[in-house]
């Protein structure tokens, strides 16, 4: 039971971070379906930093540097989307797809190159970071508290405040709803959209890091992040682009995802004798059903996906 709660919380943390990232990007008017790729790159940035630091450094330093590295990697990756979508008015769905493929390919190529350079026989795409990872975890009895749970919670609250209570949030919102209106009162739509995309990169990258440190102490980058970026998009839509709703949606989706990891610990679930694949599918099936119910009256940012052209008013 405790394990289920632990997994639910850590998966929900991943989802909440990434979904909030998507939320910022879409509120600025840019659809970001490349979150999956951004997560991989963020995870890579974090993993390499952990590998580099090893087990020697103090926990606080490890946390700070690793998080920073993930966030920066994510931002860098998101800028690929930003530049093309905002300045060159490229199709955002196509870019997102490219980003997902790119994230996976870059990670594998890079990790393999590093592994090869260290050991000519090591052709795997795995990074081990077991020692550094322990900095993120505090054991409370049987419960593994992960600092990321707290970070995710703080980010959630901050997102709410930023979006609804600050000048920045109000302007960002306006750019996703009616960029012409924003422009006419002197708001730089391009700048705000860059901000939205970069925040999504930062949070997506961080989410990737949380995902790979969730349970294991090494990561095989050929596996990517197993569709979590896409799941986060579903969380965002289910949460109707509102931070607090996204928090709740993430908990729900996190719970179902956790179930597939730990269902063997529950007698009544075992007695159902369902193949384990069913539990793997469950989050996706549920998000599909949920989408059917919420999409009819869905209130996506009005101008999302439409490149803003100053000439067209």
């Amino acid at each position: 039971m405790l394990l289920l709660i632990q997994y639910t919380l850590i998966f929900a943390s991943v989802l909440v971070l990434v979904a909030l990232g998507g939320c910022f990007s879409e509120h600025s008017g840019v659809i970001n379906i490349g979150l999956e790729g951004i997560m991989v790159i963020g995870a890579l940035g974090g993993a390499l930093m952990m590998k580099f630091l090893g087990g020697g450094a103090p926990a606080a330093v490890v946390i700070l540097l690793v998080v920073l590295s993930s966030v920066l990697s994510g931002i860098l990756c998101s800028l690929l989307l930003g530049v093309a979508a905002i300045h060159f008015k490229a199709d955002q769905t196509l870019l997102g797809t490219a980003l997902n493929l790119l994230g996976a390919a870059v990670a594998v190529v890079l990790v393999r190159a590093i592994n090869l350079s260290e050991d000519i026989d090591n052709v795997s795409s795995t990074i081990k970071y077991g020692e550094a990872k322990s900095a993120f975890i505090i054991r409370i009895g049987d419960f593994e508290f992960n600092w990321f749970m707290l970070i995710a919670f703080v980010v959630l609250i901050l997102s709410y405040i930023v979006l609804y209570k600050t000048k920045f949030g109000m302007r960002l919102y306006a750019c996703g709803e009616h960029p012409q209106a924003a422009d006419s009162v002197g708001i730089n739509v391009y700048k705000m959209r860059y901000a939205g995309v970069m925040i999504s990169g930062a949070l997506g990258g961080l989410g990737g890091l949380v995902y790979i440190t969730a349970g294991v102490s090494e990561w095989k980058f050929e596996n990517g992040v197993a569709g979590f970026g896409f799941l986060a998009l579903a969380v965002m839509i289910f949460g109707q682009w509102k931070p607090l709703n996204i928090g709740l949606a993430a908990l729900l989706f996190g719970f179902f995802r956790a179930l597939s990891n730990v269902y063997t610990g529950f007698d009544f679930l075992l007695s159902l004798k369902l193949p384990s694949v069913i539990y793997n599918m469950l989050p996706y099936i549920i998000s599909l059903i949920v989408l059917v119910f919420v999409s009819k009256k869905s209130r996506a940012p009005k101008a999302e996906g439409i490149p803003y052209d100053k000439g067209q008013r």
Partner: peptide, 20 residues
């Protein structure tokens, strides 16, 4: 009109000239 439809009248008026 250059108005954000899901904002209030007040929010639309102050948008771009906010006091913080």
């Amino acid at each position: 009109f250059k108005l954000v439809e899901c904002f209030t009248v007040l929010d639309n008026i102050i948008l771009g000239a906010e006091t913080t």
